[in-house]
């Protein structure tokens, strides 16, 4: 059973731009903070989802990437496989700062809950009602071999029909998101070389 898998859509989010299938769809070079930059992307999507504002920056970038790729998808059988370098350290540091001083010791549950990288997957699952396979890997750089192996196994074992995969990293306010949707139909063959090339674009 050798079924060809295709890339149907992909997106990049950087510190001031968003690209869908390689084309610039959003740009903002004016904002002061990451929070405001991500808010400006959210506003451009013209959606109403107040929970967005409760997320940490990591979940926000994951949420936004998925929003661009899944807004026209009806299929709910989509697995999510993400990876990054910094795990949830961007938020881990905030939680650590809240507990360093015993005289000013107020750990926040709404920060602590985001000190796990798979929470971003949870946010996307809730938003798009995906009760599907999910996994979060951590590697030095975007490891297309690991992604390809795992995503192919989910598809061939028929655990899912499509996979939302990608590299979702934020570390000290540096954003690097590359997300793709793969399945039976698409614009390009799903191979690790093609994924690597699209990531580098």
């Amino acid at each position: 059973m050798d079924k060809q898998v295709y890339i149907s859509k992909y997106c990049h989010i950087t510190n001031n731009q968003v690209f869908i299938n390689g084309e610039l769809v959003f740009e903002n070079t004016q904002t002061d903070t990451t929070k405001n930059y991500l808010k400006s992307i959210y506003k451009s999507l013209d959606i109403k989802y107040p929970k967005f504002f409760k997320m940490d920056n990591f979940s926000k970038i994951a949420f936004l990437g998925a929003e661009f790729l899944l807004k026209e998808e009806d299929n709910k059988n989509i697995a999510i496989v993400f990876s990054n370098n910094a795990s949830s350290l961007d938020t881990d540091r905030k939680h650590q700062d809240s507990i360093n001083d015993l005289d000013n010791y107020f750990p926040s549950p709404s920060i602590f809950v985001y000190t796990l990288p798979n929470i971003g997957i949870g946010e996307i699952s809730i938003r798009h009602q995906l009760r599907s396979e999910n996994a979060f890997f951590v590697s030095e750089q975007f490891n297309t071999t690991q992604h390809n192996t795992y995503e192919t196994s989910l598809l061939t074992e028929e655990k899912t029909e499509q996979v939302l995969g990608g590299w979702v990293n934020i570390d000290n306010d540096e954003i690097d998101v590359f997300m793709y949707l793969i399945g039976k139909k698409g614009i390009e063959k799903y191979t690790k070389e093609n994924i690597q090339n699209l990531y580098n674009k």
Binding site: I80, V113, I119, I121, G122, E123, S125, I126, H128, Q129, L130, R131, S132, E133, N134, A135, K159
Partner: peptide
């Protein structure tokens, strides 16, 4: 083996145990 998300809440488990 299998993993399925509740798609319900980020910290509270699903009340129906769906996932």
């Amino acid at each position: 083996s299998a993993s399925c998300n509740d798609a319900n809440h980020i910290s509270g488990p699903s009340r129906t145990g769906e996932g």
